[in-house]
Design a protein around this nucleic acid. Structure first.
Lengths: 344, 344
DNA sequence: AACCTCCAGTTAATCGATTAACGTGCCGAG
DNA sequence: CTCGGCACGTTAATCGATTAACTGGAGGTT
């Protein structure tokens, strides 16, 4: 099972390895007669020749591999779509991706950086599995691309979701359905959670455009999980009749799940009595809720593609400011007009 | 920014590259005086030497990289945990993993196989993102390890979840709580879906052990998503009072979600009126349901570790039969005793 | 005839490490 | 004195491809 080398092909075709190399790579084809080219190709086929990319990489100083460092593959189900986007572009370009998970351990991060640069990767992507601001690790190459995170200091190519526009789209959907008392079921404050304030800005903007006075009581914060969503939804639905929201824009789909379950416990129908919009378009969740959840999708696949395209030089990025990837609104069945008795 | 080579270190330390290599790799250390060793190390440090793994790999014929081919990174949120397990072991062993997603396209699969073998990977793992029987792609090395799938023809190292034991654990939990009318909310039949019949076997086994006559009406099949779960749960709860189940073992967490929502619509409380056990322990879902779902975890992380350990020769596998990884029962709050009026 | 130009390849250096085989100087034993 | 052996390294071949520089001969020009 010894691998067959180029010299084996050369011997069989009765030429030098230089000729084999040229023919197989299509370089300087004018210098080799068509007959010889065919002989070489036949020989390669016959012996089952597969080029050794390690040797080639050593010589050409290009590995056609890109390193993808991420802080956590494990803990989020979004990772997959991001990897898929990056992977697809890499494959289209004949590149391979080396995946390293540092589990947010700075030691592992340094080690990974070393391993990848030792491996002579052609490009590098540094990915966060949820949108945040990161301290760029020392030793990350200048031309590395940041994926789903923005560098504290700026100056790097980066792509993040356009959270504000997403918030706008979500709330606009609710306003368009006729709602005026719209709650924002927000996540608790956290220094590195950049999504929350941006989505809130979007929310406020739409209210302003619609001439709706924002009611601070309708901005409920809780832990961004289903339990938090339930807690916040309860507080909101406990408000006196006139101040109670007819719609909730939730920070994420899990909080929306919580809102659903409180509504159902109180005998409120979604969207008959309460409209809900989520965020994330979480796989295997948003579409599975009853009714299916209208939500804003986090463009993980697209961001993955973008990052890889920039990394491979297929697309230019402005290092001054992160690229904002649009978050499309996914219309399902959790938004309807506000209930009639409150309309009048 | 030219990379520094071993010869640079050698020049600075005033020795040959052979010496540098020996010192830095800790080989034959007796043949180099401690002073020289120190000089070499200092020189390496001073010039910031990082070994070039491409060159090393060419020489040693070992790349310290393992190829991980998967059919779909994108479409399942389980992928992450599997990758994480594989990655952790690889890292512990100083290996890197090259990830290739073939998107179940046989062309891409062949291409990936070529790319990886050309890349001279030291080992290879072929992963499916859900448990099934696969036709091993032509060209997959003999010593590749199958992850979350079993080869139709056998004869390969492989690891899959122990679905039967998982079914046993789930149903035993229900029996232990006092239930005797236990439904199995199953997936529709599908030739390559191996989990369903095995979980059903586990279910039947526990009933037999407990002396409970299985009722065919309690084996409900539907599409394995929330909608299917709702449909099946409705059929089951429409059964006449005496035949109605007091507990449901659901094929997956999504079907369990469906069962929850039907129960709630009918004013039934979980687990007061209906106990539910799921399967998968789906991230961001099972624990977030209200009440949190008791379920059987799919051991993705552990299977990922196992596969990588076998691939790297850390552990022996029996190629005759897939290794069955235990599926632990995760106790949360959806199981209780059956309602009293049916107990007497 | 002398010189040039193509054609159709070949030779050999090179990428950056690893490692088997080979010095050298010095000391002690016989 | 001379040979062996050790301590401490060095030389050079090698991994498998790529590619700049070269070659040998046919044919065309002046």
């Amino acid at each position: 099972m010894a691998r067959v080398r180029m010299s084996d092909v050369a011997a069989r075709a009765g030429v030098s390895t230089a000729t084999v190399s040229m023919v197989l790579n299509g370089m300087n084809t004018t210098r080799v007669s068509p007959q010889t080219q065919q002989r070489v190709r036949d020989a390669a086929e016959a012996v089952g020749y597969k080029p050794n990319s390690v040797a080639r990489s050593l010589r050409t100083q290009q590995t056609r591999m890109v390193g993808l460092i991420s802080d956590t593959i494990a803990s989020t189900p979004f990772a997959g779509r991001m990897l898929a986007g990056a992977n697809d572009v890499a494959r289209e370009q004949g590149h391979l991706v080396i995946l390293v998970d540092t589990e947010q351990d700075p030691g592992a991060e340094r080690q990974a950086l070393n391993a990848l640069s030792g491996q002579q990767v052609d490009a590098m992507i540094y990915a966060s599995m949820w949108h945040r601001v990161v301290e760029v690790p020392e030793g990350l190459p200048e031309d590395a691309v940041l994926l789903d995170c923005a560098p504290v200091a700026g100056g790097r190519a980066a792509v993040v979701p356009d959270e504000r526009a997403g918030g706008v789209a979500a709330v606009r959907e609710l306003v368009a359905a006729g709602h005026r008392r719209i709650a924002f079921v927000d996540a608790e404050e956290r220094f590195d959670l950049v999504a929350s304030p941006l989505r809130y800005e979007g929310y406020l903007r739409v209210l302003a455009d619609a001439g709706i006075e924002p009611d601070p009581a309708l901005h409920a914060r809780a832990e961004p999980v289903a339990g938090g969503g339930r807690e916040a939804a309860r507080r909101l639905l406990d408000l006196p009749a006139g101040r109670r929201p007819t719609a909730m824009f939730c920070f994420n789909d899990r909080m929306a799940m919580g809102a659903y379950s409180v509504a159902h416990h109180r005998g409120l129908s979604v969207p008959g009595d309460l409209s809900v919009v989520g965020y994330d378009d979480q796989q295997l969740v948003a579409a599975e809720l009853d009714p299916p959840l209208t939500t804003v999708a986090l463009p993980h696949y697209e961001m993955g593609r973008w990052a890889m395209e920039v990394a491979l030089g297929l697309r230019r990025a402005d290092p001054a400011v992160p690229y904002l990837m649009p978050c499309p609104l996914i219309r399902r069945a959790s938004v309807g007009p506000p209930p009639a008795q409150l309309g009048g």
